[in-house]
Design a protein around this nucleic acid. Structure first.
Lengths: 254, 254
DNA sequence: CGTTCTATTGAGGGAAGTCAACAGTGGTGG
DNA sequence: CCACCACTGTTGACTTCCCTCAATAGAACG
């Protein structure tokens, strides 16, 4: 069952992947107040240029952050899985330059900026954790740029599958070789800068080579080694290894 | 003449575009210690996977941050002009997943992470300014993803020129219609995911249409309106407009 | 005054896009 | 409960944008 508490639990888990937080800080994050909201698939949660005063924490489902060109064709710039905060940077600049849409039916928690600011102001360690979270996302954006700029269709898809596999695994939602990723071929095209037709053809060859296949929402990797090779994938960029010690001095309960 | 002081002055100027800092905080940033270093063009300052314990502040010149695919072809993910900190996120994770190279001869200041951490720990407002700086960069990465994924060659180049024009103008280094941007056609290809041959052909048509031209290192925009139109450019993504009030409580001189 | 980048142009090829038709699949309402 | 409809996936034919290879000219630099 989905509750505010379980969503915040996932979020804390995510923060702890990249930050050290003490008991008071974790409790402060877990004490955030927000409003649950259920959204069906393929709905725009935030439109480009919106002025928002809350962030969207994904409790379950999948969100895509996107930009679009003049003719309205979308380019996904990030996927947000359960436990991720879709637009944490909006607490620094409330005018979004991006849009956010649901890929599948999604449960999300809307947390007012004021809540986040209150916690971040009282606990510099939490503010730092938010910063680290944003920085980790930022690395992924750079990697996507490389993916779109310098890899062919098969490599782009393979890279994406590797990335999502690692992310779902790290988030405790499946393992890298079998995970639920409810993106259609259109969605995959939006994320890789390809058309859905070409995604279809490319998936077919990957399937026929016995590398990876997709049944409905489930991705099954039959040969991780080869997939990573095709996708030119090095998990180092995901900032999973080492981290610098925290900067913020610990604060007692505020 | 280039000095540590003038470089830090540019950096403070940059931070103030997106953050509010009080006198003590500005003084703390201006008091950072670092080592000046002159690097000639086309030199790798940081290699992918390096473990660094300092950041590079650009005093003068131009740096490119890049990733590469397996075969070593580079994809530039960001340009860093004077006043920018090339790898500020490395103070959170010292292992870089990217490389940094000089595009032109560049003077940079190497500032130890320890210095930055000291200031950020004493002044949460400065830490927040660093966070905002990273977040603004992050927006640009997303925009580059859109650029590479959903725009053709002419639009990619036009978009890049618009972006750089605005950035140089905001940094007080020229105006959007005439600025020094010492990237070769190869560099432009690395940034736009094109080959230098195709960059050459595309620049030719842009020149012939009277939109923009390039003489050596100088870009001259003859028709901003049309350039922005071709490049599908909306400066809103550069987070220049509004910003949320600061989160960190002001700290007295530490 | 050569050497090495950088810019330019041509010819030909290939990866991905466009257009179009059709087959599954799932949801919904009569 | 079935029929319909919208969405998703699949495939073919043709086109186009960009890449590759190659040759040459111009600029910069020691």
């Amino acid at each position: 069952v989905l509750s505010l508490g379980s969503a915040l639990h996932l979020f804390v888990r995510r923060l702890l992947l990249r930050s050290s937080l003490n008991y008071d800080e974790v409790e402060a994050v877990r004490g955030l107040k927000g409003e649950m909201r259920e959204v069906s698939a393929r709905v725009d949660v935030i439109r480009q240029g919106d002025h928002v005063n809350h962030v969207c924490l994904v409790a379950d489902g999948l969100l895509a952050r996107f930009g679009q060109n003049r003719s309205g064709v979308r380019q996904t710039t990030a996927f947000h899985i359960a436990g991720a905060m879709a637009d944490l940077p909006s607490m620094l600049n409330p005018r979004t330059s991006w849009g956010v849409a649901t890929v599948a039916a999604t449960t999300l928690v809307q947390i007012p900026h004021a809540e986040l600011r209150r916690v971040a102001a009282s606990f510099p360690g939490v503010a730092e954790a938010f910063w680290r979270d944003c920085a980790a996302d930022s690395l992924m954006y750079s990697e996507w740029t490389v993916n779109l700029g310098r890899r062919d269709a098969a490599a782009r898809l393979a890279h994406l599958f590797c990335e999502m596999g690692i992310r779902y695994e790290r988030a405790g939602q499946g393992d890298r070789c079998s995970f639920v990723f409810p993106a259609t071929q259109v969605d995959l095209g939006d994320a890789t800068g390809l058309t859905s037709v070409h995604v279809n053809r490319t998936l077919k060859t990957l399937r026929e080579r016995g590398v990876v296949s997709k049944q409905r929402a489930r991705i099954t990797v039959h040969d991780w080694e080869q997939l990573a090779n095709i996708g030119d994938f090095d998990s180092a960029f995901m900032a999973l290894d080492e981290q610098s010690p925290r900067i913020a001095v610990a604060t007692v309960k505020g």
